[in-house]
Write a protein that binds this DNA or RNA. Structure first.
Lengths: 192, 192
DNA sequence: TTTCTTTCTCAACATTTGTAAAGGTTTTTT
DNA sequence: AAAAAACCTTTACAAATGTTGAGAAAGAAA
């Protein structure tokens, strides 16, 4: 069952009581996005987040020069959402789009926040989630973004997400690294 | 009184009960760092965080090429710390150093985390704190870092932190923007 | 298979930013 | 005040990356 996979993942952050799990489960709704479908669009005021059961989302925006910049990929087991916009009830700066057919369990983030204030264990989960992904994960990423060359960042990406690399087009990788496909090609040919 | 300033700031995140405030107050210790002193050193396993009452910290590291990269400034009212390292009990990637004589209220982060699990209002504070600084503030910053030129980023920094700019040396600003002082000078001369 | 479309690579040239070194200015120390 | 140190700007050149356009390769559709 899908919600089993969900709660198995959640419990890698912290254990949940029966009641908390039940309350949360009631918010979950299964949904499938076809390749190219948008989960969230730029300019929308997003309300939902989505746990990726199977598939792959990318979160990206298009800058003033028309370049696509990918901020993040959400593969299986990650919770996709435009959290800053959801928290602020403001317009999302990003699109979230399925790069493959993607099955999710989605839920209203504000309803989830209500559970956070009711259930101490869900509050505990939320804190651990923020700490792991928004504090710790970002640390290394930010350092790398600012002091490593594109070549080093590619090697790193390959090392950290070897399976993800196989599922992506080169231009997606380039957009994530913040370089042009041309430059990525050069990186390949230098290392030959 | 110094702790008044502290709790006044804390209450911009969420209100605290008397007991919670008291418990937290017991952790606080006043300290002063002279210009050039380190609050945290690279390689240390940090335990403390510091609320800046007066003065200015910078958080930076030195990359393999010997370049100093400034990640963040902590002026009055901000809580300085190497949070990712503290959470993971790992070695800090960053130095935190006083750019001016800096007076702080510092406290043990793990003791604080204990209060988070005891007092729901401190838990609420911590969540709001993470959301505001680690989720929302980072959003804009990350976008800007990846799609704006150094020139635009400087204009932005000037607009968002006009008072901070006056207190900083040019090479600090350059290190924050991720460019060389030479390049920053060029930005100045172009706009004349 | 054949055609069409998307993706990837490459070359030539342009732009941005870094490097190194010099010199001027400002600040700090003696 | 004089000397020393730190800071800032500028110049010439080097390196990294972007731009454009062409074409090859791979994948999808007919």
């Amino acid at each position: 069952m899908m919600t089993e996979q969900f709660f198995k993942k959640i419990k890698t952050y912290t254990d949940l009581s029966k009641e908390a799990e039940c309350a949360w489960q009631n918010l979950l709704k299964e949904n499938t996005y076809q390749k190219g479908d948008n989960f969230i669009r730029i300019g929308q005021k997003p309300k939902k987040v989505a746990f990726v059961v199977k598939g792959l989302f990318s979160q990206y925006y298009v800058n003033d020069n028309g370049e696509t910049i990918i901020k993040y990929f959400f593969p299986e087991g990650r919770i996709a959402g435009s959290i800053p916009a959801t928290l602020q009830q403001s317009e999302s700066l990003f699109d979230i789009t399925a790069l493959e057919e993607t099955t999710v369990l989605e839920y209203d983030f504000n309803e989830f926040k209500k559970l956070v204030s009711v259930y101490p264990d869900i509050s505990e989960f939320y804190i651990r989630y923020l700490e792991r992904h928004w504090v710790i994960d970002k640390e290394y990423y930010e350092v790398s973004l600012r002091s490593d060359s594109a070549k080093v960042r590619y090697a790193d990406f390959l090392r950290r997400y070897p399976d993800l690399v196989k599922r992506l087009k080169k231009h997606h990788i380039a957009a994530y690294l913040g370089i042009t496909p041309t430059q990525l090609s050069r990186i390949f040919s230098y290392s030959k």
